[in-house]
Design a protein around this nucleic acid. Sequence first.
DNA 1: CAAAGCCGTTTTTTT
DNA 2: AACGGCTTTG
Length: 667
Amino acid sequence: MAHGLNPAQADAVATVAGPLLVLAGAGTGKTRVVTFRIAELIRRKIRRSRILGVTFTNKAAAEMQERIGKLIEKKKDDKPEISTFHSLCVRILRRNAKKLGYPEQFAIYDAGDQESLARQSLREIRVPGEVLSPGDLMSKISRWKNAGLTCDDANQLASSDKDHLAAMAYKRYQKTIKSVGAMDFDDLLLLTEELFENHPDARRAEAGRFDHLLVDEYQDTNHTQYAIVKALAEGHRNLCVVGDDDQSIYGWRGADVRHILNFRKDWPEAKVVRLEENYRSTEAILEIANRVIHYNADRYDKTLRAARLGGERPRIEQFEDEEIEAEQTVGDIRQRLTEPGRELRDFAILFRTNEQTRAFEGALRKHKVPYVLIGGMSFFDRKEVKDILAYLRLIDGHCDDVSLLRIVNRPPRGISQGTVEALQTAAVKEGHTLWQTLEDGPRVATIVPNAAPAVAKFVELIRRYQKRIANGSLAPSVRALLSEIDYEQELKRLYPEEADQASRWGIVEEMINALAAYEEQAHGKGKLNKFLDEVLLGERDTKDEKDEQLKRNAVVLMTLHSAKGLEFPIVYMVGMEEGILPHHRAAADENPQGLAEERRLCYVGITRAQDRLTFSLSLSRRKWGKPRPTIPSRFLFEVMGQADKAPAAAGLNAKPIERPRGKSGRR
DNA sequence: CAAAGCCGTTTTTTT
DNA sequence: AACGGCTTTG
């Protein structure tokens, strides 16, 4: 038997057959149970490749893979499959795309692509941005898709003009994305569900690949994910799900806590194991975590016991503005670093929105404290990288309008806006994709005389590199392509600052290196396609940087959402202000669930801390350049057990928090 | 057709 | 503050 587990944990690990629900609080060793269970399955001679572990984030997947790696000796080619829902669905869909009427080479649209498409849809139905912004439309579409609503459903249910317009734009959006053979992130899940529903043979084949299925963070499953899990596990019924309803923080993405609470309805023979002993945090930290989460009315009440008694009381610090907040937080880190045995990686700074990173990055850089920023603007979101990726997607044969539009005249090659528009009109008329229309040349569209050879030249360029990459290696070809289009010159033209030019060209170099590195480890055909998939799903980032980041001993900066499932000895929860945590968009809504989810988010943050926890807020914060006074987060008052004193409820202005007793935390 | 300049929007969280 | 889109100018 696996050692180091308490009886309840050992129980969960030992019951390897049949459905199992592990309901467990924060810091009770959920992920530990999953990994030990996988090790136990292998010990009982289950073939590794027939075990599927599903997580929600790439980071969690990488983390789990690493833990498993430590538990079992590696055997090449036969390892458990650990994957996010989205990656899993992409693999399933690549095998079955034709059954759904999609090309095998379907493109995947990320948030940026979606935004372009949303913008285009709004233009087509002539909705001005003030009436409905692309961002607004995107979130509406995502919500509808997650609820399983088609455009017609959405239109019927729409109660406001805005919703009707959004439903119309949704129709355009979906028509376009389907016609160019692309899928957005929601489609990946929805189409997998559809595949399983309408093609039982495909469902059987896909489900038959595994004997055991484990799902971590099950409280975050939305309806589609729930259906996919069910379809995959129905046959063998060896399904283990692990979760905590108090840590459900993806409601905005359609996650429904009821799926974990109703688990026994679908799997009546399920065994339920509860883990209630928290090994992570000190009693002092756990106490306030429990206090805060108790303000949520609608929850499955459970008692978390602290295994580590005593501990330092969490502190609340207030600063003038966000610059000083960052400066002082970094100062505190630097001082604590002098304690014996302290390492950079012991520290985490957690915030609600990615925007908050700026000040902290600045302060950390200023004091030369190494740090890693998790999430946020990733390498693959950089403009230069997106340009190269757009070329690659085109070259890879994705009939992908968004990519094409991005680079058709970048660098400028004589294909003007007017020409592109004429070609687009022709494409719609002919029922072709834009690329097909380009290939057909100007025969089908009326364009200015000069543009025709420019278009032909562009088509020839892409075709030539298609051939070249099909036969040769990736990185050198891309290098040649970039020099042929003189991308470096384009950067110089765009950015007058020399430092800017150098750093941006550096990114291009890095991209080519990433391609070369990928080529080295991957082999066989279709490698470009696979590379693009990995990039789009965000797997690349974690894979390439994972080792580096782990080895690199550094302070960690990330959002509360990314922090789920992780732990750190010393945690700073910064920006504890009304409007940030709880976020105004979540709390202001008429739905009380928004606030409850923000509170769970706060709970997740608190329970990341092992030894020391510091909350901080700025009394003034810059928004769009202008400083504005802030209001302390109501959660701080809940932490102190004085929820009734929170100015937030009364709508008061910035006012320092009165200490319950004594002065601010001791040093 | 391209470059420069002006205007308006933007920021919730992830895949 | 920063970026993208749109308009005007070259």
